[in-house]
Design a protein around this nucleic acid. Structure first.
Lengths: 263, 263
DNA sequence: TAGATCATTCACATTATGAAAACAATTATT
DNA sequence: AATAATTGTTTTCATAATGTGAATGATCTA
């Protein structure tokens, strides 16, 4: 999961990836822009840009570097390994519909949760879907806490060491001991709650999704504003629906795994 | 477009990207696998893998390295720069419907055409969409020839120098002079034909799509098996419908460009 | 013409590489 | 269960490649 930092690190590659990431996030950058944000000399940045251009990860338009469409294609291919099909979306949509709240499916990777599909994460602007946020911490989300509660203490410690417990809301648990207390309370219950720890007024319930090998693949969560859904109602009404959705997802994943291994 | 090979090249980054690409294309590889396909020592490959892991481009499962879901998210973000919305798809679907044949929209980048959306490129297997082919040469496709006909001879030469004229079918034009003759015949006509030069029995017609700054952004093509659509019918019946589709695409692109600049 | 920005060159300090070796962990064989 | 074989990973260190920062072109623009 999170690598124990041993073995060699290649600074060259790290710088190249940092440059690529910056260009991606800023939707295009010039050499001068990059000189201000990357800790390398201009000449060195040029070498990185040359290399990324030659490898078709970048295109240049009027002196501004942009990510290539080829990168989008590579991403599409990467996506195929993950459960992003319409059948998955249907299950999440169904959960959102029966609860009347927003539902999300996230992938657990490198100690964080990455947005895979959600009824609320995509917003339509100018015909382009803009994802509000794509990465989440575990310590202040329902989905994340549900996952942490299933992991060994060592693994949890490793994740917290790496990502910390940043305070994203007034109620965010930033103290390890308090977090472990909260995780212990979850115990063998298969879901976790979040009560304004992620954002003011937001309450949600989340549960892990396991892959064909029983490894934790991600999590589903559903919730909304506190004035619509109070905490008691989450456990009383939403827990069952949530666990049904995760069970459906898991059986879907298992059936796909058996199809792909049988040939 | 295609870089004139000057300036420094970073081997480290190239190797890292090569490793990433191999893992992506083979849907997961072990260290031993990579040792056989990448021209680097095992210890060196390990350093690259460490770096790609730490930067969350890879995940490791049972000793096998896979591309991360985060790479898919990065790709999604890259995709936002390009016209991949439902409005674009509708235009292509419409073209396919009125002609009764397969229509494709491809992006022109680094001297090649990259599959953006097509009515035939996606095939459904096990609920996963498998793209049959994602990159095309210009010299043996209708879309590519239409683009080449609009470029200066110098640019065409540069592209041919870089990508060559590989023979992909019996009828593929592999001789530069013959290709230039064919391009001259196209002249100021705004579309080009392909007659079994891409694949045996396949005929198609293609036309370029220009972005808001009149630069060539990609191309649309439509065609099918020769026993259904002979060459004469392409020009007689399909050319108009194709040019209507590209005009619609271009006005769509222009209206989007004006929306995004006006704030 | 001057002032930007983009891009390459150079010599020297820093970092990466390859090959062999060592170790760890897993798997296969006896 | 013990041993051998395989695979994954890190070390070591001489050699090769990259990073640096200043200088120099090369464009473009005011």
């Amino acid at each position: 999961m999170i690598r124990n930092i041993t073995g060699r690190q290649l600074k060259t590659t790290e710088t190249s990836l940092e440059i690529l990431r910056n260009i991606l996030e800023h939707d295009g950058l010039t050499l001068n822009d990059l000189d201000g944000m990357v800790n390398s000399s201009k000449s060195s940045i040029c070498s990185h840009l040359n290399t990324l251009m030659d490898n078709r990860y970048l295109v240049k338009e009027d002196g501004t570097y942009h990510v290539s469409f080829r990168l989008a294609l590579l991403g599409k291919r990467a996506e195929q390994r993950y459960p992003t099909g319409d059948d998955v979306k249907e299950i999440i949509d169904q959960l959102a519909h029966t609860t009347g709240q927003e539902a999300n499916f996230t992938i657990f990777e490198h100690g964080r949760l990455l947005a895979c599909y959600g009824t609320s994460t995509d917003e339509n602007r100018n015909g382009m879907t803009v994802r509000y946020r794509s990465e989440y911490h575990l310590h202040n989300t329902a989905a994340g806490k549900a996952i942490l509660a299933e992991l060994d203490r060592d693994e949890v410690e490793m994740i917290l060491d790496y990502w910390g417990l940043p305070q994203e809301s007034e109620e965010t648990i930033t103290d390890r001991d308090r977090l472990f207390d909260a995780l212990n309370e979850i115990g063998s219950q298969r879901y976790a709650l979040v009560d304004e720890e992620f954002a003011p007024g937001l309450v949600a319930i989340g549960a892990p999704v396991h892959g064909a090998d029983e490894e934790i693949l991600g999590a589903v969560s559903v919730g909304g504003p506190k004035y619509q859904v109070d905490i008691a109602r989450l456990e009383r009404e939403f827990a069952d629906k949530l666990l049904t959705a995760t069970a459906e997802l898991e059986s879907l994943l298992k059936s796909k795994a058996s199809i792909s291994t049988e040939r």
